[in-house]
Design a protein around this nucleic acid. Structure first.
Lengths: 264, 264
DNA sequence: TGACACCGATGTGTGCTGACATCAAAACTC
DNA sequence: GAGTTTTGATGTCAGCACACATCGGTGTCA
């Protein structure tokens, strides 16, 4: 039994989380999650300074755990540590917007709208180029699977099977991105899945996918199968324009931020 | 004086790095850099297992430093820690390809060609869309500055002033990306600067920028100033096509990798 | 008397260490 | 071969030494 644990039980009993030892995730992970969520949500505002010792008390963990968590948050650009001052929360434009953790935290909080817009715009930029590259480079197996999935999507969409359609939609766009042979594009698979799921969950999706949109997916797959790069790009662009216009109401009120360039 | 430090001095004297205490970067940072570079370069191959204690000896640092470094590398997807086994190097497709550290390490080693291709393709996807968004949303100050910079670029390019041209080129594309009002696009500024610098340094740049390319930059700036989204996108696309065709020889021999989807 | 430079006290991140908890692989027993 | 024990690695804790930025007090000089 640790001295700290004994102290905690004696001093603040009920306030302490139960089943600490049976938590599935590590303390380290929980600390990152706790701090990251609070920073991204704005509960810990830009410029806010924390002390390592204060975090130990707050999270009821030891210095090792706090320090390792802070190091990870530092690598994400969420905080900086300054000698003699403490751990300071950095402004949002210093955060790494491509890190999966940061994206997840933003999607979970107030920043959801702005995050979805960023992701949708990124998708709209990347997917047509990915389609072009896939048409030029994808292995035969992926071309075939894209065809199969696009046809299955059309069936599921016309049948109004929302759940199956979402699953196939995610698979289609994932195949497209990995088929590009660009590892940065391929890495966006998770974010795209998040976007598509979010669109469905938030009712930004029409009851039944438009037939033209369904056909465009087939067009993309057929163009890639035929190694028609320009056709694949064009069909993919149409999908993206449609997608953006469908989702746009969800973030119309979100202000855009223009980050000043640092002297250079 | 620490026991470990004394041991090191007594036992392996000369092999130990000098001026350890006066190093500008922290031990933690050096450990990340050391391990990250070796993993990305392939010196520590996929599946290779290290022990924390062994890393302490090797890097001549304490457990705290090793553990904090490993935690950061874990958050980048470079390693995983498994109880009773050790610290295992993960395959490249698990690495976060958008993290600045990973990109820097890849650019510094054998993966340079493949990394430059990925970045160039990402740029070619993002910049036209960024130009479109900037035409719709950028504040007036950025539109004006884009115009000024594009004209200065034309002068520097025609005068054959390579250094000044590079600097203005970086500034132009940075303004474009930040002017889009998309924080993910804006975050690519550093990577774009790296690409442009690399192109110049590696002699993939023509002695003197082609006049048409110079004019295209002015076209982009003028279209954005006039809120002409389609025109900005089109002119930006031309620049990207030109850029890709100039740089393509640098990575023609790099194999593409197609990452299998995880059960989905 | 007031302004300024110097210098030490203080507090906080950085780094090191030893001890113990935990858990899964491997060895062992029946 | 199934169940149990041992083993060996990471996970966590707590205390200490150190470097160094900041602050406040003291002394000097004009």
């Amino acid at each position: 039994m640790y001295a700290r644990a004994a102290d905690g039980a004696a001093q603040d009993g009920a306030a302490r989380p139960i089943m600490l030892t049976t938590m599935s995730t590590s303390l380290h992970h929980r600390a990152i999650e706790n701090l990251g969520t609070r920073i991204v949500s704005g509960a810990l505002p830009t410029g806010h300074v924390m002390l390592a010792e204060q975090l130990e008390d707050e999270l009821k963990v030891s210095r090792s755990v706090v320090r390792e968590a802070v190091r990870v948050l530092q690598s994400l650009g969420l905080v900086e540590t300054i000698k003699r001052v403490g751990i300071r929360v950095l402004p949002a434009h210093r955060w790494n917007p491509f890190d999966p953790l940061v994206i997840r935290w933003r999607l979970a909080g107030d920043g959801r709208g702005a995050q979805l817009r960023s992701l949708a715009e990124l998708r709209s930029a990347v997917e047509p180029v990915a389609a072009e590259l896939a048409a030029a480079n994808a292995p035969q197996a992926i071309r075939q699977e894209l065809l199969d999935v696009s046809l299955a999507m059309r069936d599921a969409g016309e049948a109004g099977n929302v759940a199956e359609f979402l699953e196939l939609d995610i698979k289609f766009h994932s195949l497209l991105l990995t088929g590009s042979g660009n590892e940065m594009f391929a890495n966006l698979v998770g974010q795209v899945a998040e976007t598509l799921t979010g669109r469905t969950v938030h009712g930004l999706m029409p009851d039944r996918p438009r037939e033209t949109a369904l056909q465009w997916h087939v067009d993309v797959a057929e163009a890639i199968a035929a190694a028609d790069a320009a056709g694949a790009r064009e069909a993919s662009s149409r999908i993206m324009r449609e997608t953006i216009s469908e989702m746009e109401p969800g973030w119309r009120d979100q202000p855009r931020v223009f980050i000043p360039l640092q002297q250079g």
